[in-house]
């Protein structure tokens, strides 16, 4: 059997996380990107191809790691070529675009999976398992917080291209809140941005989203893009009528040092040292889904629901009012 070939499109931050995972799983990876592909393969492996057409022709599956505004067309191209698709989150900026992507993949008989990698972070997965097996009883209230240095690429800071912090960063926790507490029927959100300073984006950017779930449970999701010295940190607390679970990524560190030279933190892209990379766990499930038909823990419909919640939050930020959400079937 010839090796499984993955066509990785894009060479930004998330490509640096996905490429080593595919390689570790034994896939042959061809990379196409407008910029950065040679540097990416020089660092991790794989090989560069010169065009999207060549990439599609060589691949068994495609992994879309490009900026959000390009997701729709690239997924449609992959579907037209009959290739399974992994697409980084958010799947797209609008529910309509995601629906078009889902429909195209369904019509082509290929699978589409969104990169909601927080579902694969061990602490989050452990919490979800406990919620799913009833350890906490009926969920009442959840809080999720995500803090990191702001992404450096300018497109992240353009709402038209990225959907802002809610669509790009907080969508992880919006997806997770829905995974544990179920469909969301109402969204209220606010966002504030610091003053313009120097040549970079205005920082900090921070948003606060309150969700009401169909079950009656309520969730608070907040995210911050801070300046370059802000260390990546996540927190959650989930409470049901039978107990609570809480986690802070700053706690429970299996290694720490006192008196050693400072080790630079990783500001934007989270890492989980001392346990398997959640990106590898994620890609392994998608790989298996493509080859063996075993459904992963996240579906394209989940990705669409997350986009719907984030889009509603952005609408609430613009209007100043809470937004009722129609649950998509």
């Amino acid at each position: 059997m010839s090796p499984y070939t993955v066509g990785l499109i894009g060479a930004g931050g998330i490509a640096h996380a996905h490429l080593p995972a595919w390689l570790q799983l034994g896939a042959d990876v061809v990379v196409h990107s407008l910029v950065g592909a040679p540097e990416l393969v020089a660092e991790h492996g794989g090989r560069v191809v010169d065009s999207l057409e060549e990439l599609l022709a060589l691949s068994d599956a495609v992994d879309v790691c490009t900026p959000t505004p390009t997701h729709r067309d690239l997924v449609l191209a992959a579907a037209a070529a009959g290739r399974h698709v992994v697409c980084e989150k958010p799947l797209a900026l609008t529910v309509d675009d995601v629906t078009a992507m889902i429909d195209a993949c369904a019509a082509a008989g290929v699978s589409l999976y969104p990169g909601h990698v927080v579902r694969y972070f061990p602490a989050y997965a452990a919490m979800h398992d406990a919620v799913a097996d009833g350890t906490l009883g009926a969920l009442a209230v959840q809080r999720f917080q995500r803090i990191g240095a702001a992404p450096r690429m300018a497109w992240f800071h353009d709402d038209e291209q990225s959907g802002g912090i809610v669509m790009d960063q907080m969508i992880h926790d919006l997806d997770f809140a829905r995974w544990t507490a179920g469909e969301v029927v109402r969204v209220h959100a606010t966002r504030t941005t610091g003053s313009e300073g120097g040549d970079g984006p205005a920082l900090p950017v921070t948003a606060q989203v309150i969700l009401t779930h169909r079950s009656g449970a309520i969730s608070y999701v907040t995210g911050t893009w801070g300046h370059a010295d802000v260390t990546f940190q996540t927190r959650f607390e989930v409470v049901g009528d039978q107990g609570l679970l809480q986690h802070d990524s700053a706690d429970h560190q299996p290694f720490s040092a006192n008196g050693l030279p400072a080790v630079a933190g990783s500001g934007y892209r989270p890492t989980v040292p001392y346990s398997e990379s959640p990106y590898l766990s994620e890609i392994r499930e998608f790989h298996r889904a493509f080859r063996e038909g075993v459904e992963p823990r996240v579906s394209a419909l989940d990705g669409r629901a997350a986009v719907a919640i984030a889009a509603a939050a952005n609408a609430s930020i613009r209007s100043g009012s809470a937004v009722d959400l129609e649950v998509l079937s």
């Binding site: 969920l139 009442a140 209220h188 309150i210 009401t212 309520i218 009528d241 100043g320």
Partner: peptide, 12 residues
């Protein structure tokens, strides 16, 4: 200047 609240009675 403005307030939004969400609440429930799921606990107790």
């Amino acid at each position: 200047v403005s307030v939004y609240a969400a609440a429930n009675e799921i606990l107790h």
